[in-house]
């Protein structure tokens, strides 16, 4: 007897839950031949607003999670992704990526997570310093996360690009709201299922699918967002982000690269982008 396939409903990922968009809108994504693959949630500014509220709430507890624990959680994401490798490869192929490229993208994604998992309890030593000063002070500098970070993820490499920007931000104690690649959004939502089963506290990573032109101004202007990462080269977007981010002196980080594959795309300096240096002057006896 034949049976009907049960197709997955792709929804948003906010606060560890999978809600539909409050706007009830959707947009279709198609493969290279123009056939419909799936209908994705077309997230609205209110979905973004809700995500920021939750990201703000959990940021405090996420930053106080021990470095060891954060590293373990990132490693756990990699483990889960490894277990569902085939599904992710298939999904990438479905969205128009060549088989060979899809295989490389998924395995690089897993490796990248492991890479940042390793940095979890090390980047602090790498960037912190004890500074010589000409007074009776013990002067030292260490890093603190910027806070809530909004991310416009890379448009191509929907999985690897996404992971390459999320991982360094969260390993440093930030919480993020990400707008996934518009056309390769299946992988982003499947990845949120991986996050959800990897001990990542709900709200640390929030993933929205939708249109850049609708959401970018809100990603850049929200007063409770402390930094924005923009991946892309559109001059108009870059201007919008720069202008609106200035309202609350949001940190802006622009990645104009197209290819996230090679190893130049992983380094502790990606973590440092969403960190603030704090210098303490501690009085000491002469």
């Amino acid at each position: 007897m034949s049976r009907l396939n049960i197709n997955k409903t792709y929804k948003l990922y906010i606060g560890g839950k999978f809600p539909r968009t409050e706007s009830s809108r959707y947009y279709p994504i198609t493969n290279t031949k123009g056939d419909l693959i799936a209908n994705m949630c077309l997230a609205s500014r209110k979905d973004f607003r809700n995500a920021v509220v939750i990201a703000r709430k959990v940021q405090e507890s996420w930053v106080s999670t021990s470095a060891l624990n954060k590293g373990q959680i990132l490693y756990r994401i990699a483990e889960m992704l490894e277990g569902r490798k085939e599904q992710f490869i298939e999904e990438l192929i479905l969205q128009g990526v060549q088989k060979k490229a899809a295989q490389i993208e998924v395995s690089t994604s897993i490796d990248r997570l492991v890479y940042y998992a390793g940095w979890s309890d090390k980047y602090q030593q790498f960037f912190s310093s004890v500074n010589p000063v000409n007074s009776a002070h013990f002067n030292f500098t260490n890093l603190e996360p910027t806070g809530v970070v909004s991310i416009i993820a890379p448009e191509n490499q929907g999985l690897l690009g996404l992971i390459s920007v999320i991982a360094p931000a969260i390993v440093g104690g930030n919480t993020v709201i990400v707008l996934a690649s518009q056309n390769i959004s299946l992988s982003a939502i499947s990845f949120s299922e991986v996050l959800n089963s990897s001990d990542v506290p709900g709200g640390v990573v929030n993933i929205l699918t939708g249109k850049r032109e609708e959401l970018i101004s809100h990603f850049a202007s929200h007063m409770d967002v402390n930094a924005i990462i923009y991946c892309g080269t559109d001059q108009k977007d870059l201007k919008t982000v720069s202008e609106l981010a200035s309202n609350n002196v949001k940190r802006t980080i622009f990645y104009k690269k197209n290819d996230w594959l090679n190893s130049s795309n992983e380094s502790p300096y990606f973590i440092e982008k969403t960190q603030e240096a704090k210098t303490t002057w501690h009085p000491v006896k002469i």
Partner: peptide, 9 residues
């Protein structure tokens, strides 16, 4: 203002 606000302010 048109911008979502933060409790910080």
């Amino acid at each position: 203002t048109g911008f979502y606000q933060s409790a910080n302010y």
